[in-house]
Design a protein around this nucleic acid. Structure first.
Lengths: 137, 137
DNA sequence: CTTGAACCTGACACCGGTGTCAACTTCTAC
DNA sequence: GTAGAAGTTGACACCGGTGTCAGGTTCAAG
């Protein structure tokens, strides 16, 4: 598929996809004219890359991590070196703290939103005040 | 307490605490010489502020949110306006997506770390490879 | 009074993935 | 062949909470 479709299917902007390739996180075949061509596997990979970025990892770390992770196609891997394992372990700890912060923030938002819809005598007509169930992490 | 102690107790740098005050998120008494003095309630408040920042909210949004949230001391509140509720609802949705990304990232890290300690014939002597249980959100 | 730790204000820099625009080329459907 | 959608490279800007340094002031203990 071409970059536009990959962007649509993965939910990541074309700009970011090109950046990922620049950083060596994504590879593509090229058409004779230079247009990128991606396989289906790229969708999953992009989603993972995006998740890792969202978790606060930088390009360099993701670049070291990618060849060591079990891919969707169960492709061949390297094993993470001790140094990389240390780094990933630290990242994991940071992510755990971050998840804790996010959960606290979510609670605060929930309470505040609930208090508003309970307390306002002027119910906003656009949102039916039904809050979705807590996300299953 | 003074700013140093608050920093220690909340785990937030003095620099950030002064910035929070600048942004109107935190109030302090001042000593005759100008030194800040905080009550015990400040610790909880700072932790919440920090969590909200970590969740990606900016100063302006936090500033609007703070007076509407139920504080630790159950202090008096305003109610969030409809416009603010909309904003908070959007933020909550974003946080939910972010938590999903973080969970995926954590899984990837876990698998990669586990694969490394299982696959390496050279066990790094510093970490006993016991992975902590998944964090109870 | 003296001394050293703690605090004050103000300023500068940073980071790095992403949005956006420009100018041009390639692809595709008719 | 031709028009228009889609893709390409390159460059510029941004954001905003935080780290850090400088130079000066305050506080508390001896």
């Amino acid at each position: 598929m071409r970059i536009g479709e990959l962007a649509r299917r993965s939910g990541v902007s074309e700009r970011s996809l090109r950046y990922y390739e620049d950083q060596g996180l994504l590879v593509s075949e090229r058409s004779p004219g230079g247009h990128r061509n991606f396989g289906d596997w790229a969708v999953d990979r992009v989603i993972r890359i995006q998740a890792l970025y969202a978790a606060g990892l930088n390009s360099a770390t993701i670049g070291r991590l990618l060849p060591c992770m079990r891919d969707a196609d169960g492709g061949p891997n390297e094993f993470a070196t001790g140094r990389l394992v240390d780094e990933l372990t630290a990242e994991r700890a940071r992510i755990d703290r971050l998840i804790a912060d996010l959960s606290l923030s979510r609670e605060i938002l929930d309470e505040t939103i609930a208090a508003a819809s309970a307390g306002l005598s002027d119910p906003a007509p656009h949102l039916p005040a039904g809050r979705p169930p807590a996300p299953r992490a």
